[in-house]
Amino acid sequence: MTRTVIRETIFTAIDFESAGTASGKTDAPVQVGTTSWSLDDGISDTWTSYIHTDQDITWSAQKVHGITRDDLKDAPKLMLLWPHLKRRLASRAVVAHGHGTEKRFLNAFPGHGFGPWIDTLQLSRAAWPEISDHSLGAICQTHNLHHSVGKIVPDRTWHDALYDAAASIVLLEHIINTFELHNSPLSSLISPDTSAWHRLRR
């Protein structure tokens, strides 16, 4: 897939929200969201689910995303979401803003083979090194992308998994358009040569 041209690629962004790290326990996902995009079809197939966990949601995590035990009451366990994740991530370029958490939680499915991975945090730092804050919310605010995100997922906000996945995919589209990368190889997003990008920058 890494030799594919960007305009021929389907991208799926993924985001997890978590229960937070409690003493003596590993973190656990409590919500997942995905949003797909391609140059020809635009945004498609937004999907989200809460995820059951036996762990308590820490106060600090709940303060960030607002998810409570009541939200997870009838939620499926992560392993039961495999068919949904496989359909949306297999044979796609997988996008996340700082992909460490997403990769770690997907390790629940050994040998899943998802990828290649596109990290919009890495791309944002490379594309706009002069900006001091490259967090997803800050970079979208700087480039006035939050309005586009809101149209895709109305009635949601930051730190909702579906909203953050949609924001990542909107940011990726903005980067591709700004640097006119449509006919570039997919590898230019995996290991960006920003000197080439800036020669093409509008």
Rank of each mutant, 00 (worst) to 15 (best):
M1H: 06
T2Y: 11
R3T: 10
R7G: 11
F11V: 11
A13V: 04
A13E: 05
I14G: 00
D15P: 08
D15T: 05
F16M: 09
E17L: 02
S18Y: 05
A19N: 09
G20V: 15
T21F: 14
T21Y: 04
T21K: 15
T21D: 02
A22G: 13
G24L: 13
G24F: 05
D27I: 13
D27K: 07
A28L: 10
V30N: 04
Q31S: 12
T34Q: 11
T34W: 08
T35I: 13
G42D: 04
G42Q: 09
I43A: 14
I43W: 14
S44Y: 08
S44T: 14
W47L: 12
T48M: 15
H52P: 04
D54I: 04
Q55H: 03
D56G: 06
I57N: 05
T58R: 03
W59Q: 13
K63S: 07
V64I: 11
G66K: 14
T68K: 04
T68N: 07
D71I: 07
K73E: 08
K73F: 03
P76L: 05
L78N: 04
M79K: 13
L80A: 14
W82T: 13
W82C: 09
P83S: 11
K86M: 15
K86W: 13
A90Y: 14
R92M: 08
R92I: 08
A93R: 08
V95I: 08
A96M: 03
G98I: 02
T101E: 07
E102N: 01
R104F: 01
R104M: 10
F105M: 05
L106G: 00
A108K: 09
F109W: 07
F109Y: 09
P110T: 06
F114Q: 01
G115N: 10
G115Y: 03
G115Q: 06
T120H: 01
T120I: 09
L121P: 01
A126Y: 00
A126W: 00
W128V: 09
P129Q: 13
P129N: 14
I131G: 12
D133E: 12
D133F: 11
H134G: 08
S135M: 11
L136Q: 01
L136F: 00
G137Y: 03
I139A: 02
C140T: 10
C140F: 02
Q141Y: 09
H143T: 09
N144R: 14
N144E: 11
N144G: 08
N144V: 07
L145N: 06
H146Y: 08
H146I: 14
S148V: 12
G150R: 10
K151D: 12
D155F: 15
D155E: 15
R156G: 02
R156E: 08
H159W: 04
H159L: 11
A161G: 02
A161D: 06
L162N: 04
D164L: 11
S168K: 02
I169P: 07
L172G: 10
E173N: 05
H174Q: 04
I176H: 01
N177H: 08
H182F: 10
S184Y: 08
P185K: 12
P185S: 13
L186F: 06
S188K: 02
S188E: 10
S191D: 05
P192M: 06
P192S: 13
T194P: 06
R199N: 15
R199A: 15
